[in-house]
């Protein structure tokens, strides 16, 4: 078994270096090499964080639902699935928050307002609050298996919101624009280096997510082991007292 320090391994450290390099390249492309937009000017650069953030949140919540489904349907019901789901949920919430904050900044500069109750923003706020609730439900107590069961059911229900958020701009009239890449017309509405910067952001943020999940689920494993160990110690102490 490879020698580890904390929650990292040599593989995660290498991945971390690649993530840092990709984020640095994204910063260069987004802030320096890519041109301003004809209408928005430099405000367009917020997109290189805003879109990858919500993309990563979709992936995170998708992974949380997948792992929850595997946990509930599996024969051995390994808690590792639940821990990956929990870690994904936490990181997904973080990325939705980043997306909401950056979107709000972009809205102020482009629309002229930080927030409107249109279909996209409202459904995204609902997505955010649902997963904050999911994280709170995970902390409600009980055994690890009780935690895994109730949060898995919730994760499988909450994932149904993602299509609602994504297609809200086509289902209802919205101030938020339709997707520029994954749109129903299958037409890419971004010029050269803008598209490249956005694509780079998607890849970099996805890799950052993988790195974060690997660390967080290991930290969760240690937390679970710590609480299990505390129980074992208490039982052993009582057994010793009873035997004395």
């Amino acid at each position: 078994m490879a020698k580890t320090s904390g929650t990292g391994t040599s593989a995660t450290r290498r991945l971390g270096i690649v993530v840092i390099l990709m984020l640095a390249t994204l910063a260069l492309c987004g802030l320096w090499f890519s041109a301003e937009d004809v209408v928005q000017g430099s405000t367009v650069r917020i997109m290189y964080i805003h879109v990858p953030s919500i993309w990563t949140a979709y992936i995170a919540f998708g992974l949380a639902a997948l792992c929850s489904g595997v946990y509930l349907s599996g024969k051995n019901r390994s808690l590792a699935w639940d821990r990956v789901a929990g870690a994904s949920g936490e990181i997904g919430v973080l990325f939705v928050a980043v997306s909401l904050v950056t979107g709000s900044m972009w809205g102020r500069l482009t629309w002229g307002t930080y927030w409107v109750w249109d279909a996209r923003l409202t459904s995204t706020a609902f997505l955010f609050i649902t997963y904050v609730g999911y994280l709170a439900v995970r902390q409600l107590g009980g055994t690890h298996r009780q935690r895994a069961r109730r949060s898995s059911v919730l994760a499988l229900l909450a994932i149904l919101e993602i299509p609602l958020v994504h297609f809200s701009v086509t289902l209802w009239r919205s101030l938020h624009q339709e997707a520029s890449v994954a749109n129903p017309n299958a037409k890419v509405e971004l010029d050269g280096l803008m598209l490249f910067s956005l694509f780079l952001g998607l890849v970099a943020f996805t890799m950052l997510f993988v790195w974060l999940v690997l660390h967080r689920q290991r930290a969760m494993m240690l937390e679970d082991a710590f609480s299990d160990r505390g129980l074992d110690v208490a039982i052993t102490a009582r057994r010793n007292e009873a035997g004395a």
Partner: peptide
């Protein structure tokens, strides 16, 4: 008493 600008989904480079 309130105006919101509705940006399209097209992003065009300024100098292109």
């Amino acid at each position: 008493d309130r105006i919101e600008v509705k940006h399209s989904n097209q992003y065009v480079e300024k100098n292109a």
